[in-house]
Structure formats: structure tokens, C-alpha cells
Write a protein that binds this DNA or RNA. Structure first.
Length: 423
DNA sequence: TCTGGGGTCCTAGGACCC
DNA sequence: TCTGGGGTCCTAGGACCC
């Protein structure tokens, strides 16, 4: 039996979330900006129609924004994460096999489900719209790559009502459709590969589908071979139903203003390490390698510097305080005075599951169990009383470098004091 | 003045070993 | 002067994704 994999994706997710709680934004061109209000990372359909590109710096858009009355919102990740959870929970009712692929996308395996898949997809759309207010599109196909492509087709209006099921197409119609889509739209074909493929005469998705998988593997890599096979309807990429633990954890931010002194950098790095360590403990892992980096802005004429260093830890750990200590040491090694730093960050890697390390023959951790108990207490207190209630002293309290958020929407769904009241 | 953040996988090439 | 061949492991960097 043909596989039927669905890809459900919220239209203009961040912009749509803002609209749910602020209907004045409906029909208006809306963009959501990245941290520091740096770049446009989400656009409503109206903003896209004005030619606003993904990732475009906001300061370059101010003129066109004024002309057309574009509304810019600072990103509100607490709100988007909460809305995402609601959408995913609704979708999970439609199939036992779900992969939450990103904050606004989910694969569902519908293979063998009774009833027309088009109807099931419409029911998903209806329930999500009704229960969250968010608009979604659904693409269905025999492989993940084709499901993604079907979703694209639905969004572009190749199929009616926001749903497209490639399994319901006959071969000729499907090929006609694929012949009209550029290869850059295919999942896994990015900026660099498009010109190389074009050079081989492969321009449309249909061309790529008709390429020889073996040959493509030789010319490119096994990834490309899988893409070609998936386009032919052969599922090569399985659904990942349980999210595997992260192999690396990054925490980094651009500063709201250039930072020059070691003290401020120390505060920032200390905060980032603590955040990364929290994520590490949440997935019950230890890290053995800590990497810290700082750099100046890559743009402009000012003097540029980029410093980074990795340190192998004496033993894998999940202890914020130990990690902060090492990070502070690294920072002192890579810091150079006289530069205007724009960004700092840390990365934890060589991650292994907790347990196993540092246990004696009876399965107990030796004396330094205090560290583990300290972290449990710290996470519990911060969970109860709010992030950063307890923290390393090196984090400081002022954070003058913190990011700018000029137009942040309230935390409608995650803070009692900001809940939207309707009368 | 102002340019995001967080991930994964694959490959090539060097180091090292026998 | 002459200087093999094959295997593994590791890392940096490139490509992609949202």
C-alpha cells in the first residue's frame, strides 16, 4: 500500500500568532522581527506581497514600511511556543505516528487511515482554526519530500482549500505540476545546489525526479540520492516520532548595543552557559566539551575580531556552576580589549545520556552528588519562581547589553497578568 | 545608529596504526 | 637512491533545515 504522509504547517506562523490576539493586524502587512529587532523573520501575506524578503534587515525596510504602513512586531517566543504546543496536541489526535518537525510543522503518518485523506486534512484545518485561530495548510504524499512539496503546492493555490494530496493525482497531472515548480522549492535543495543542478540541465522538480539516483549520488552525495528517490515516491526518510536528545546545545545572542568590557561579556556568557546547562539537564544529559565564542560585527568598517576556544572538561557534567567557571576561564583567554563586541555565545557538545558516568560498582555516584542535588534544587526554584531567580553571581543583575525589543506583544497565554480579557 | 538563533548530516583529508 | 597499502578515527567545513 502507498504510504500517505501528511505535512501540516501553519501559514506565516509568527505573524499569524500575533494576529490571533490582535485582530487589528488582520488584512495589514505585518512582519515579525528577530531578536534585537534585527531582521524580518516572518511576514504576513500582505508583507510578502510588498516584496519583503525573509531575513532582510529591518533598518533597510524602514522606508518601505513607512510608505505602506507595515506593522513590525518584536518576536515573542513564549507566545509562539505555547501556540505551537496547542497545534501539535490537536494534530496528535489524528494519528499515532507524529513527528513534530519544527515549531510550526508536523508530519503525520496517515497510511491506512480509513476515509478520504482530503477530508481528514480538512478536519485538521477546521479544528486548528477553531481551537487556536491559526490557519494551516496540509500536503500529503508517499514520502516526506513529496508531502513537503504538496504542502507548498497547497500554499501556492495549485490545489483548492489549503489541502493537496499527491496520492490522489494521476501520474500525468502530477508530472505537469512538478514541471512547473523550481528545484529550489524541494526540501534539501538549497542555495548552493540550485546552480550546480541547473548546470546539469536540471531546472524543474520533474527534471530532478527523472535524474538517475546512482549518478546523482556520485555527482553530489547520498543526501541528493535520497531526495531523488523520495521524489519518485520511494520513502527513504522515516518519521522521527520521539525527538532524539540534542547532540549539541547552543545559546547565543547579539547584544542590544556594542560591548567592550570584559565584565559585561562575563555576565552575558555566564547567562548563556546557564541557559545551555538548563537545556542539558532537561534532556538528562551531560556534556564533555564547552565552546565559547565572542565576535565583533561582521558588517561595517570597524576593526574586526573573532575569538573562540573549546575546552574538554575533566569529566562530563551538567552542573551550571562548574560550566560557568570553565566558561569564565575561556572568556579570559579569548578576550581582547579595544573591540566593540556584537555577539557572544556558548556551545555544549560531546553530549551523553546522564547515568553511566561517575557511578561506582553499586550504581551510586561518588561524593560529588552534592552537585546534582544543587542543580535539582536550582531548577525547581527557577521553575517555581521564574527563570534566573537563582543564578551564578557572575551573571550580574543589570544586563545593560540585553537585547532590544521595541514592539513586543504581551504574553497573552503564558502570564496571568497579561492574559487577554474579553468582555 | 541598526544585519537572528539553533540545529542536523555528510565528506574530505589528516593523523595514526599495523 | 629506493619509501606500500589499507584501515580507523577525528575534525573542520560545507551544505541543508526552520
Amino acid at each position: 500500500m502507498n504510504r500517505a504522509i501528511a505535512l501540516i504547517d501553519v501559514n506565516n506562523f509568527y505573524a499569524s500568532c500575533e494576529r490571533v490576539f490582535n485582530p487589528k493586524l488582520n488584512g495589514q502587512p505585518v512582519v515579525v522581527l528577530s531578536n534585537n529587532d534585527g531582521c524580518a523573520i516572518a511576514r504576513s501575506a500582505e508583507a510578502k506581497a510588498l516584496g519583503i524578503k525573509m531575513g532582510e534587515p529591518w533598518f533597510k525596510l524602514k522606508d518601505i514600511a513607512r510608505q505602506h504602513g507595515i506593522i513590525a512586531m518584536s518576536s515573542n517566543y513564549a507566545l509562539y511556543a505555547d501556540m505551537s504546543n496547542r497545534v501539535m496536541a490537536i494534530l496528535s489526535k489524528f494519528s499515532p505516528d507524529q513527528e513534530v518537525y519544527s515549531i510550526d510543522e508536523s508530519f503525520l503518518d496517515l497510511t491506512g487511515m480509513p476515509g478520504r485523506h482530503l477530508d481528514i486534512a480538512q478536519e485538521m484545518r477546521g479544528r486548528i482554526r477553531q481551537e487556536t485561530g491559526l490557519p494551516v495548510c496540509v500536503g500529503i504524499g508517499p514520502s516526506k519530500t513529496l508531502a513537503k512539496l504538496a504542502n507548498h503546492a497547497a500554499k501556492k493555490g495549485y490545489a483548492p482549500d489549503g489541502v493537496c494530496d499527491f496520492n490522489g493525482f494521476n501520474e500525468r497531472d502530477l508530472e505537469t505540476l512538478l514541471a512547473g515548480i523550481e528545484i529550489g522549492e524541494v526540501w534539501g535543495i538549497g542555495r548552493r545546489l540550485v546552480p550546480r543542478l541547473n548546470g546539469l540541465g536540471i531546472k524543474s522538480v520533474l527534471d530532478l525526479k527523472r535524474a538517475d539516483p546512482e549518478h546523482m549520488r556520485q555527482q553530489f552525495s547520498v543526501v541528493m540520492e535520497k531526495t531523488v528517490r523520495e521524489l519518485r515516491g520511494q520513502a527513504c526518510i522515516e518519521l522521527k516520532e520521539v525527538a532524539p536528545p540534542k547532540k549539541q546545545i547552543i545559546s547565543s545572542r547579539s547584544f542590544g548595543f556594542p560591548v567592550t568590557d570584559l565584565d559585561s561579556l562575563s555576565e552575558a556568557v555566564s547567562l548563556y552557559v546557564s541557559r545551555a546547562a538548563e537545556k542539558l539537564r532537561r534532556q538528562e544529559s551531560y556534556a564533555a566539551l564547552l565552546h565559547v565564542f565572542i565576535h565583533t560585527s561582521p558588517f561595517g568598517d570597524g576593526p574586526k575580531y573573532s575569538g573562540s576556544l573549546s575546552v574538554k572538561l575533566p569529566a562530563p557534567t551538567d552542573d551550571s556552576l562548574q560550566l560557568v567557571r570553565v566558561a569564565m576561564w575561556i572568556l579570559r583567554q579569548i578576550y581582547r580589549p579595544g573591540f566593540r563586541y556584537q555577539k557572544a555565545g556558548v556551545m555544549l557538545s560531546e553530549i551523553t545520556p546522564a547515568g553511566g558516568q561517575q557511578t561506582d560498582m553499586f550504581g551510586f555516584r561518588p561524593a560529588d552528588d552534592r552537585s546534582a542535588r544543587r542543580m535539582v534544587a536550582m531548577d525547581a526554584i527557577n521553575g517555581r519562581w521564574g527563570k534566573q531567580t537563582i543564578r551564578a553571581a557572575s551573571q550580574g543583575y543589570k544586563a545593560p547589553w540585553a537585547m532590544r525589543q521595541g514592539n513586543l506583544s504581551p504574553s497573552y497565554t503564558t502570564r496571568w497578568d497579561e492574559v487577554l480579557l474579553v468582555d
